[in-house]
Amino acid sequence: MRALPLALLLALVPLPAAAQVRGVELRTPRAFGYFQGDLVQVQAEIRTDPGFTLQRPSLPKPGPVTYWLDLRDVRTEESRGADGAHVIRLRLTYQDFYVALDARTLEVPGFPVTVESAGANGSTTAVAQVPAWKIGVSPLREVQPERRDDPADYLRPDGRAPRLDPQPALASAAGFLALAVLALLLLAYDRAWWIFGRRRGRPFALALKALGRAKRQSQGEALYREALLALHRGLDATDGRRVLADDLPDFLGRHPAFKGQAGGLEKFFSASRLAFFGRDTAGAGTTLPLPEVEALLRRLGAVERSA
């Protein structure tokens, strides 16, 4: 917005209700040099006695004012002046559509604005007249232009749009695509979709790890029982159910890859029975010593990897 008020038109309009409206001041930009389509910003400052406020319905409505002029926008702000007066500021935006053939001055019509004061005995209204003012409009080109053979030459060539660089947009699109694919992969992994659905757990590898942890924490009979438990959990996880000693043939039927370990598993089950239910951990230890449990776990883990 052109902030510089090039012309200052001051009009003090004496009104019948002049006692309430102290004055109307119009600040206009330059008074000449307007072309067709230009926006004209005007500020009207209405000073009233304290207690008066603007009656908004009395403001002009945005829309055509005359055949060549539109009111585009009306904004208001109210404040208190230095002398105690109430100041109403109207910011008006007009648009000029006059197709001038020569430079001439046109009058922008004024309009009344009502202010009111709501007192105990009803409301008092007063009218502030915003005065008419003038703008000087000018033609865009001469009336008789130079003669051209091709009528198209009367038109100005199109403005050249700057060439936009698509590289950053492409790079960010590729980046977001990569992020989306990564998120989809993570989701698929979480939901076990697609190739992740077929991934097999490695229960015996986990059991071996658990045994490694147990070795650091316990020893003796407790460690031996932990080792047996780790193998049990590995078998359970492999089969998806609890495998008891009597289930071994069925287990081997369901998982033929482990048939080579049948002997070791049989020994394991009889040792486990003795240790957990037969109150004979020592006997179990001779049936299947701890290193053999670990070796059996390793062999099972190897079968599991190759299966």
Partner: peptide, 8 residues
Amino acid sequence: VFETVPAP
């Protein structure tokens, strides 16, 4: 129940 509860 038997498939869930761990035996030893």
